[in-house]
Write a protein that binds this DNA or RNA. Sequence first.
DNA 1: TGCCTTCCGTACGGTGCCGTATGGTCTCAC
DNA 2: GTGAGACCATACGGCACCGTACGGAAGGCA
Lengths: 204, 204
Amino acid sequence: MPYGLTVRYRTAMVVKRRLSRQDWAEAALAALADGGLAAVAVEPLAIRLGTTKGSFYWHFANREALVQAAVERWADEHTEALIRQLEPVSDPATRLRQLFEAAIGSGRISRAELALLAHADDPLVAPVLSRVTARRVDFIAACYAETGVPPGDARRHAVLAYTAHIGLIQAQRASGGTLLADRDRPAYLDFLYRVISVERPPRR
Amino acid sequence: MPYGLTVRYRTAMVVKRRLSRQDWAEAALAALADGGLAAVAVEPLAIRLGTTKGSFYWHFANREALVQAAVERWADEHTEALIRQLEPVSDPATRLRQLFEAAIGSGRISRAELALLAHADDPLVAPVLSRVTARRVDFIAACYAETGVPPGDARRHAVLAYTAHIGLIQAQRASGGTLLADRDRPAYLDFLYRVISVERPPRR
DNA sequence: TGCCTTCCGTACGGTGCCGTATGGTCTCAC
DNA sequence: GTGAGACCATACGGCACCGTACGGAAGGCA
């Protein structure tokens, strides 16, 4: 909501900016993160961007195209970028540890995550989500394998690590945050890291 | 139709009968399971039931009331009923084992589950979902405690068990079913059961 | 300066849903 | 059989959104 204001402000103060396809995609991803797939709607977004549908239908054929753009953007930002960033880390155990910390850390990340999981069977979401899920688990499994775990075990570890993570953010939200109090979180993470054979990360 | 019978013919296959509040709630839960919260819509449901909105607004004040009824129905069927069924099992380890088997078994159960998780922040869903989540995890933790695990550990075990389960059905759907092939499932469950300290259930 | 492309504003019609109003029909007690 | 209450059908207005049509404004370039 301060977003719309900002745009209005910018419009008034500076120069009226013409929007690009990327601007729309970015706004769509933001809307997705905090309103679900249904919030990716042309007219509301236009208002939020301080423009009108006229702009939108110049850059996109229809709403479907916008959703696709947003989802692709998400896949890149929240998976490929992270993997690119972790790939140079040579020690696989350190790599895993950093991955889990990054994943568990940001609540902003999980918001888009949850919105997409919520529409996993939507024809626009499903293919990307499926690709991303496979990519992540494969990456985790490869790290485990690199630490010396036999391949079959590596995959099982990876599946557990990934599902425990997804399940945790889901259940935390489902419980209204009462599932795990903040003060119990470190102990739980220690426990989880021990279970999935990751060396305990240093406490901050 | 050649019969000029007194029985009015409806488009649906069901014979025309007067509907109860429960009929609507049941249909709503079914719609929820396979179309998400948005599918709990009065007019489509009326068509599906072979009736009209006139019936609906006799039994319910508005759509909100219908959603509430469906969600409550879900909470009872998929949590309270299961717990009632498991409570008489005296051995806590057996109780846990049966619980996990029941939870992992039915795909029909998880469909409504997923639909509700998808709308965890909806004001109509949130309170019930939060209640149910707490109830389930508490139940699991109590079982663990009863097996002799110290209380703190019991809760951590319970959280892991629950989130691993939720995460698994989520990730399976997200991956389009490719996360864990059917043939890898038993081995994974063995692994999971070992990790969360539950005696391995007998293979069927 | 004028022109042409790129981009945006606005008006409009269409769709799917919610909720109300009102009158009709069915059922059961009597 | 009849009347009262329970239940349903239909028509209507409203809202939020999609997508189209078309007339402009903005900004580079001759």
